[in-house]
Nucleic acid binder design. Structure first.
Length: 343
DNA sequence: GGTAGACCTGGACGC
DNA sequence: GCGTCCAGGTCTACC
């Protein structure tokens, strides 16, 4: 390893719990090593990519009593100061280090079921663009295919580190790809043109055109610049963000709601076929799909702005009950089976 | 506004 | 080993 540095964490942060809290920890370029409880990923820092291994040590270098302890980052090559800042910023986004402990406590006051385990943070991607593409690759497809698509996108289009591992491709790199190349080499199927179109929008940082009907409702978004920053800005209203996301190619109601939770807007529920399975097998609901969806919305209504976290940790607890703690899962074995029909 | 069917891939299943 | 069927969310055409 070429360099080592540390990143401070909020007082409640536990790497093994908070990294292994959402399925993206199993998708390339990410890799969780259960044996050592280390998180490895490859980050595109602009001009170079770095493969980094992230760990969290307790007193004396132990793996116990790690809560709130800083993260140790080991990079394969020594980064410049600017590159180190870029790596730290992207890791902070992935682990939501910007959400302080008080914010997690507010969630626990609303839904005390998760206070004992401390669950509250949800792992996400290094960039919003990667979150959007990962969401698209998880739609209308079984989870093993999502794993393949993300691995191939990295291998075919991502910048390689000195270790020979690949980062997730930037919007600029994917924007230069041809749709048929993505289909042939990355197994993305009919999503090919949509992914390239999304990449071009994010590479220009322009966003979709505001449709007349949305404009008539007073919804607007920046057309020429700063689309990503506008979406990430907490001052932007949920309705405007949702309307903008629904204008993106390949983004429907489910994907828009999922991207919103990835943006930290937890009031929206991305309900899908897995939600229906949860309603029937865990919550004990019955009836046609539409009625189940209404029951699910009613069930999570009391959790207000935290709805998604309550919903997700219910699902996650079910998976862990069947497959053991998520930090013991490996991508190629348990990780391939952890959704829907296989459980 | 609601609905049906196409889109594409990988896994399950039957032979 | 091969062929068939199915799951999965979005998009478009149609009523």
């Amino acid at each position: 390893m070429g360099a080592r540095f540390q990143i401070a964490t909020p007082g409640d942060f536990v790497l093994s719990r908070d990294a292994c809290s959402y399925g993206y920890f199993l998708l390339a370029p990410n890799h969780w090593e259960p044996g050592t409880r280390e998180f490895r990923t490859t980050i595109d820092a602009g001009e170079r990519a770095f493969t980094v291994v992230v760990s969290q040590d307790g007193p004396g270098g132990s793996r116990a009593r790690v809560r709130g302890r800083p993260l140790t980052v080991r990079a394969d090559v020594a980064p410049s100061r600017a590159e180190r800042d870029a790596i730290a910023a992207q890791l902070a986004r992935m682990f939501r280090l910007d959400e302080d402990a008080a914010e997690v406590r507010a969630f626990h006051r609303t839904d005390p079921r998760w206070r004992r385990t401390g669950r509250g943070r949800l792992m996400r991607s290094a960039t919003l663009f990667e979150d959007v593409i990962k969401t698209v690759t998880s739609c209308n497809v079984a989870w093993p295919s999502t794993i393949i698509m993300n691995r191939r996108l990295c291998e075919v289009a991502g910048r390689a580190s000195a270790s020979g591992l690949h980062a997730f491709p930037s919007a600029a790199r994917l924007a230069r790809m041809r749709a048929r190349t993505l289909r042939a080499r990355c197994n993305v199927g009919y999503r090919d043109a949509r992914i390239v179109e999304l990449a071009r929008l994010f590479a220009r940082d322009a966003g979709p055109r505001v449709p007349p009907r949305a404009a008539a409702r007073g919804v607007s978004w920046p057309v020429r610049s700063g689309f990503s920053a506008w979406l990430e800005d907490r001052r932007t209203g949920d309705d405007a963000v949702r309307a903008a996301l629904l204008e993106l190619p390949g983004i429907g109601p489910y994907a828009a709601a999922n991207i919103m939770q990835l943006l930290g807007r937890y009031a929206h529920l991305p309900l899908d076929s897995e939600s229906l399975r949860h309603a029937r097998t865990v919550l004990g609901y019955s009836g046609p799909d539409r009625a189940l969806m209404e029951k699910l919305h009613a069930h999570y209504e009391p959790f207000g702005e935290h709805r998604f976290r309550s919903y997700w940790f219910e699902l996650w607890a079910f998976y862990e009950q069947r497959r053991g703690p998520s930090w013991t899962w490996e991508r190629e074995t348990t990780g391939k089976t952890f959704t829907a029909s296989k459980l």
